[in-house]
Design a protein around this nucleic acid. Sequence first.
DNA 1: CAGTATCCGCATCGATACTG
DNA 2: CAGTATCGATGCGGATACTG
Lengths: 123, 123
Amino acid sequence: MTKMPDNDTFVFEQPCPIRDVLDRIGDQWSLLIMETLAPGTLRFNALMREIGDISKQMLSRTLKQLEQDGFITRTLYPEVPLRVEYALTDLGHSFLEPMQQLITWAETHHRTIVIARERYQST
Amino acid sequence: MTKMPDNDTFVFEQPCPIRDVLDRIGDQWSLLIMETLAPGTLRFNALMREIGDISKQMLSRTLKQLEQDGFITRTLYPEVPLRVEYALTDLGHSFLEPMQQLITWAETHHRTIVIARERYQST
DNA sequence: CAGTATCCGCATCGATACTG
DNA sequence: CAGTATCGATGCGGATACTG
């Protein structure tokens, strides 16, 4: 991204906020999970059912990432059987706002892109 | 994404515009290339120099993808030596608008995220 | 100058068996 | 119910030699 200064002291510093955020939403599931949580709190298996084609593995991993970055909260109720609820934080909600702009753009221009691709094929 | 109907006839159809667009901007270079082209036309090697740490390979591949989707144009001037110029299309420019919202969000909240991560580590 | 072809390492993701 | 651990396939991305 931006040219880094030749200073290995800060190898673990994230120099580029955009990359850092894009890595998160660019992955397979993060955005979808956040959108799914947008209406309200959900439990682990409820999330799995809502999303439909995600594995336990990926749901678990992605949720942990999102929690770690402060996009969602994880609340454990030590009942029997266990209950764990996931919810968007304010940060998570605020993220979905600019994201919604992009989603709208995607929906609006998707056809144009698909057509461009087909045209390119036939060249 | 959205539950697909059980119809394998359309396996190559892109059911989800969001995924489709995100797959493109979620990759390592597409967005950076488009931002680099935003001010104006650039030649292949000029792009390499501007970006700095991209390989010929990836620049070539990504440019082709972007051209294919209609985000940029590629103009060949058959001089000696060869000259090829890349420029954003209207679609490309229009894409950068909602994207700018997201970039601003990322810049604004990046510190918050980094802090959240560190806090999580120490838990 | 502007690429393409080839090869390879590495991270990502999925399936599944197992655990508290 | 809510995960984690393990394994394996797949594909992205980098390095570099080669081409028109």
